[in-house]
Amino acid sequence: MDFSSIVIMEKDKQTGMLMKELGSYKVEDGAEYITKTFCQDNIVHIYFDTAKDVEDWEYSAIYDNFPEDSFEDNGFDIEFIDDEYNPTWLIKFKFVDDYVDMESKLAILCRLIKEGIEGTMEAIKGREEEYKEE
């Protein structure tokens, strides 16, 4: 599925309800991995996963090989969410009021997601026996 934009909605901390749209931003490759986005207390939360079901051995291999440091190097907080069926991460960063700056930040994030997922999937090819032995 092709994505052309990400809409960031403000989420009420008390009720969990989405309150209002903070912005709609043009994005390109990488957004197809994003599963959920919202802003709470001026912090943007973006969840993403592999966009496909993975085998048990792949779950561990992806976790071990995913380049979380590339996100941190670009100013994003990242954490692995281990209670999901497929490998899932949460990215957090401060909301930027300037539309152009926010769109640029999201473009960088989408590129990192795409490179991270696709690079990791390539890196684990042929390594099934290594991870099945664990």
Rank of each mutant, 00 (worst) to 15 (best):
F3I: 07
S5F: 04
S5R: 13
V7K: 13
I8F: 02
I8W: 00
I8A: 02
M9Y: 10
E10N: 05
D12A: 08
D12P: 00
K13V: 08
K13R: 11
Q14M: 12
Q14E: 12
T15S: 12
T15M: 03
M17C: 12
M19K: 15
K20C: 07
K20V: 15
E21R: 13
S24I: 09
S24G: 13
S24N: 15
K26Y: 14
K26M: 12
D29E: 13
D29T: 09
G30N: 01
A31V: 03
A31R: 02
E32C: 01
E32L: 04
Y33A: 01
Y33H: 09
T35S: 14
K36H: 08
K36F: 06
T37L: 09
C39M: 08
D41W: 05
N42H: 05
I43Q: 04
V44K: 00
V44I: 07
H45R: 05
H45A: 11
I46W: 01
Y47I: 03
Y47T: 01
Y47C: 01
Y47F: 08
D49V: 06
D49H: 10
K52Q: 05
K52N: 04
K52M: 12
V54L: 15
E55S: 06
D56C: 14
D56Y: 05
D56S: 14
W57H: 09
W57M: 02
W57Q: 01
W57N: 00
E58P: 05
S60P: 02
S60I: 03
A61E: 12
A61H: 03
I62E: 01
I62K: 02
D64V: 07
N65M: 15
F66E: 06
F66S: 04
F66A: 07
E68I: 11
E68A: 09
D69M: 11
D69H: 14
D69W: 11
S70V: 15
F71G: 00
E72L: 11
E72G: 03
E72I: 14
D73N: 14
N74W: 04
F76V: 00
D77M: 12
I78S: 00
E79F: 11
E79N: 12
I81H: 02
I81F: 07
D82Q: 12
E84G: 09
P87S: 03
T88K: 06
T88W: 09
L90T: 05
L90Q: 01
I91V: 05
I91K: 04
K92H: 11
K94N: 14
K94S: 13
D97W: 07
D97R: 14
D98H: 12
Y99K: 15
V100T: 15
D101G: 04
M102V: 06
K105V: 09
K105D: 07
L106K: 13
L106S: 06
A107Y: 06
L109Y: 01
L109C: 04
C110D: 00
R111Y: 08
L112F: 04
I113D: 00
G116E: 02
G116S: 10
I117K: 02
E118W: 07
E118Q: 13
E118F: 07
E118I: 03
T120N: 06
M121R: 05
E122F: 12
E122I: 02
E122D: 13
A123C: 09
A123R: 06
I124K: 01
G126C: 06
E128Y: 12
E129K: 15
E129T: 13
E130G: 01
Y131H: 09
K132A: 08
K132P: 02
K132V: 07
K132D: 09
E133N: 14
E133Y: 08
E134D: 11
